[in-house]
């Protein structure tokens, strides 16, 4: 009797787990990695909204995971990852566009300098 009492929930748990998807542990880890990479390249400055959304969704995914709602957890993790990917590419693009502006400005200043010198001669 005692054995049955403890074995039943485990059995139920196992069947329940099998009926839905597997725990998206790896997906969560992957998402965390993408968010960390985005942070490292400066997404906080170039894509603050996107990185914030990614982090919120990761939290929600973890909550669902803890409630063993693995399908929801997997979906939220996937959305969080795509948010973080957008934050990454937006950061890189923002930096590159800034570099273009700076480069063009430096060319403009150099040309102005050259013109000024020509004027002196």
């Amino acid at each position: 009797m005692k054995v049955l009492k403890t074995a039943l929930p485990i059995l139920l748990f196992l069947t329940g787990a099998c009926a839905s998807t597997n725990p998206p542990t790896q997906q969560l880890t992957e998402t965390e990695t993408v968010i960390r990479q985005a942070d490292q390249i400066g997404a906080g400055d170039y894509a603050p909204l996107e990185i914030r959304k990614a982090r919120q969704k990761l939290e929600q995914a973890r909550a669902a995971y803890n409630k063993e709602d693995y399908e929801e957890a997997a979906r939220l993790a996937e959305q969080s990852k795509v948010d973080a990917e957008l934050a990454q590419i937006k950061t890189l693009s923002g930096k590159a566009q800034l570099a273009v502006r700076e480069l063009k400005e430096s060319i403009r200043l150099l040309e102005e300098e050259l013109r000024k010198r020509d004027g002196e001669n």
């Binding site: 795509v82 890189l92 693009s93 273009v100």
Partner: peptide, 16 residues
Amino acid sequence: QKAAIARETANLNKAQ
């Protein structure tokens, strides 16, 4: 989001 990624990717490559 992937559409937005496509847009930003284009901006990045264009800038480069």
